[in-house]
Each structure stands twice: as C-alpha cells, then as structure tokens.
Amino acid sequence: MPQALSDTEIARALGGLANWRGNAGRLSRTVRLPEQAHGTLIGRVQRDAAELADHAQFERRRGELTFTVTTGFPGRVTEPDLWLARRIEALLTELT
C-alpha cells in the first residue's frame, strides 16, 4: 500500500505542477481545450492510471476538462497520484 504524503510533501510537489491544486485527499486541474481532444486525452490518462492502480476522474464542460486524481485509498495523496498528475501534464503538452 502506498504511503500517504504529508501536507508539506504535497505542497512541495504542487510547486512543480503549475495549475494543479490539491490537499491530502486529491489533486485536481482544469484545462481549456477543444472538446474533440477530450476523448483522446481521457483514454490515454485512463490507461496510465490503470497501470498504477490509480484513479482519474473527469468532468467535462464546454471547452474545459477537469481532472481529479485519487488513489484507491480515500483521503490520501500518494506518490502514484503525483506521477499521474505529471503524466497528465506531459500528455497536455504533447496534445496542445
């Protein structure tokens, strides 16, 4: 079972993840991107999340997509969550 990160560790990690916000329970980010790109990005993120046994939830709004990253352990942010957030950033860079 992955270790929960402290508030200090989470804050430090978020310092390197522009536009992400979070707390001990989850990480999230909203991006503006054309709706036709949502499906491709969601599919790739879901595949990466499954490899980590992590979870990424998606909320679509007109021209926006919000990612919420959580582990299977409610109320915890762990290193796999941070890895997935970094992966989402890399995919966004690749797709935009």
Rank of each mutant, 00 (worst) to 15 (best):
Q46K: 14
D48R: 15
A37V: 01
A11R: 15
Q36V: 14
G16D: 13
I42C: 06
E51I: 12
E79F: 06
D54R: 09
R86Y: 05
A4M: 01
T70F: 00
T68Q: 07
L95V: 07
P34N: 11
E79K: 08
R62F: 14
N23A: 08
R32A: 10
L91I: 03
L5N: 09
L17A: 00
E64H: 10
R86I: 04
A37Y: 03
L5C: 10
P80F: 05
P80T: 06
E51M: 14
A24S: 13
L91E: 12
G39H: 07
L33W: 01
A11V: 08
V31K: 02
I10E: 08
G43E: 08
T71W: 02
G16K: 13
T96Q: 09
G43Q: 05
R44I: 04
R62K: 15
E51C: 13
R12A: 10
G15N: 09
S6C: 04
T93M: 09
E9M: 03
E35C: 08
A11L: 12
L91W: 10
R61L: 12
L95S: 04
T78G: 03
L91T: 02
H55Y: 10
V31E: 11
R29I: 04
T71E: 00
L95G: 03
A90C: 05
R61G: 07
P2K: 10
T96R: 10
S6N: 03
V45T: 07
R60W: 12
R26W: 10
G43K: 01
V31G: 02
E64K: 09
Q57T: 12
L52C: 09
L27Q: 03
T78W: 00
E94R: 06
G15L: 08
T30P: 03
G63Q: 03
G39T: 10
A11M: 11
T40R: 09
F67A: 00
G25L: 08
G25I: 04
D7C: 12
A11Y: 09
P2G: 12
L65P: 00
L5Y: 07
L92T: 01
V77N: 00
G75P: 01
R21K: 13
L33T: 02
L95N: 02
L95Y: 02
N23P: 03
I10G: 11
E51F: 12
L5P: 14
L65F: 07
R47L: 12
Q36N: 13
A11K: 15
